[in-house]
Simulated assay, not measured.
Amino acid sequence: MAQDEARLRRHLASSLLDDIDGITGRLVSDICAHSALYASGRPVPLADLRAICRDNLVLVVKDFGRMPAGADDFTAAATETGRRRAGQGMPLDTVLMAYRRGGRVLWQAMTEPLRGRPAGEQDLALDVAGALWETIDRFSTVMSDAYRLAQLELQHRRESRRGAFLEALLEGRGSDPAVAAAASAALGIPVTDSYVVVVIDQNPADPAAPEPVLKEADLWSFWRTRAARSTGLVRLASLEPAKLAAVLRTARLGAVGMSPAFRSLADADTALRLAERALGTLSPHSGEVAELDERLVEAMLTGDAEMADRIVARYLGGVPECGPDAVLLMDTLNTWLAMGCSAPRTAERLYCHRNTILNRLERISEITGWSIESGEARLGWALALRAARVPR
């Protein structure tokens, strides 16, 4: 029985190989009739489709007929097809459809020689013909595995290339128009639009992924890890920076520094420097978001710790050393300044009597030696309160 099956397989395979060019033509026409993408010749040229179809048909038929072709050739051809189609960007489902059409065309071509077989061989003929689909399935599986691996490799290379261009922008090479244009193409964003650079100081034991958070808010971003921080370029488009800050604040990704918005990719390096200045005004892993333009004073004071300490000493004097009352006095002073130096409005905000506010202010005046009516004192207190909060 095994010999009969082997003879029948070789007979059918020989019949198919004798008409391989005709079968190839029918297969190409069938594939194009069922796929507008293949029919268009893009991304797979029709000549490429025809050549691959013919070569694969020969190997599939020889494997089915157990003719000398070599298992290595069979596997190598399926692997090459998978890698080639992945590189061309042809969807895997479309490629698998072409393989199914190939099996159908081969099956139809096989029915002609089967019709002439003796009646006693019909069952064997059907079993042998059914084995054709097993061969097609094996070829499809090898091709699919190769396609997915190639796709992963291509994605890794694309991500590496995008990362390299982001690094180039952050290092200041975007001032070269050619580099800016190449970065624009690699990242898929315009050279000119509304952007910010964001730097996140995350908990290394539990880092959060900022890109999905922003994607959910319909914001494009691309991120790299630099100096143990997540650094990202975010495309604002028509969104206001304050809205981005709100998204980041809600996500609680860590301490976040945001640059002011800028228009050209050539300015990404300056934006990075400003985002880092903003981040420097926050305590590590604080969960706060610092927009530079909202924290310019803190950014200046953070850049000169010695000067910040002297401002605190000159204008606040011994207030920070007032034990349990220190926080109360400084909060009162901060609120009073924020309320336009109005005692009634401060009292309303802090839910206490106006005289209580005046008594606290008088005590601050006594400790610091500055009159609450002094314009310099008010400016100095505002600076000192911020200087007391910035990280050293």
Score class of each variant (00 low, 15 high):
Ala119Lys: 15
Leu170Ser: 10
Trp381Val: 09
Ala313Trp: 00
His285Gly: 08
Thr281Ala: 00
Thr81Ile: 15
Leu114Asn: 06
Ala164Trp: 00
Val256Ala: 05
Val142Glu: 06
Val105Arg: 02
Ser238Thr: 14
Thr346Cys: 02
Asp293Met: 10
Thr250Ala: 13
Thr335Val: 11
Ile52Lys: 13
Arg9Met: 03
Gly103Pro: 12
Arg263Ala: 10
Ser35Val: 03
Leu166Ile: 07
Leu149Arg: 14
Val196Arg: 06
Val128Asp: 09
Leu379Tyr: 07
Leu166Gly: 00
Leu329Trp: 03
Ser342Cys: 04
Ala13Val: 00
Arg161Cys: 05
Arg392Thr: 07
Pro241Lys: 12
Ala246Asp: 14
Trp381Ser: 10
Ser29Ile: 00
Gly163Cys: 03
Gly254Gln: 06
Val128Trp: 05
Thr111Asp: 15
Ala164Lys: 06
Gly102His: 14
Asp201Glu: 11
Gly163Glu: 01
Leu358Pro: 02
Asn56Ser: 14
Glu211Trp: 12
Asp176Met: 03
His156Tyr: 08
Ser238Trp: 01
Ser29Phe: 04
Gly172Cys: 02
Val61Trp: 04
Arg138Leu: 02
Leu337Thr: 02
Asp293Pro: 11
Asp267Val: 14
Asp18Pro: 13
Thr135Ala: 10
Pro91Leu: 08
Thr192Ala: 05
Ser259Thr: 00
Glu291Arg: 10
Ala86Arg: 07
Gly22Cys: 12
Phe165Thr: 07
Val289Gln: 07
Ala388Phe: 07
Val60Pro: 03
Asp55Tyr: 10
Gln155Met: 04
Ala387Tyr: 05
Trp381Asn: 05
Arg349Gly: 04
Val199Ser: 03
Glu153Pro: 00
Leu296Asn: 07
Leu233Thr: 09
Gly120Gln: 06
Ala227Lys: 12
Pro207Tyr: 04
Pro68Gln: 09
Ala119Arg: 12
Ser14Tyr: 04
Leu46Ser: 08
Ala186Cys: 07
Ala266Arg: 02
Met67Gly: 01
Gly87Val: 05
Leu358Ile: 00
Leu272Lys: 11
Pro207Arg: 07
Val327Ile: 13
Glu362Gly: 15
Tyr315Ile: 01
Glu80Cys: 14
Gly102Tyr: 14
Glu362Cys: 11
Ala51Val: 11
Val61Ile: 12
Leu233Arg: 13
Ala268Glu: 08
Leu383Glu: 02
Leu132Tyr: 05
Ala39Phe: 09
Arg148Asp: 12
Leu114Arg: 12
Ala76Thr: 14
Asp218Phe: 09
Ala164Gly: 06
Glu80Asp: 15
Arg50Trp: 02
Pro118Leu: 06
Tyr351Ala: 15
Gly174Trp: 10
Leu219His: 07
Gly174Met: 09
Ala39Thr: 06
Gln108Leu: 14
Gly287Trp: 05
Ala39Gly: 01
Ser286Gln: 10
Asp19His: 15
Thr302Gln: 06
Ser371Phe: 08
Gln3Asp: 08
Thr111Tyr: 15
Gly254Asn: 09
Ala98Ser: 03
Val247Met: 04
Val198Met: 15
Leu253Pro: 10
Leu282Lys: 01
Arg389Trp: 11
Leu282His: 01
Asp293Arg: 13
Val105Asn: 07
Gly188Cys: 05
Ala125Leu: 03
Thr302Trp: 01
Gln151Gly: 03
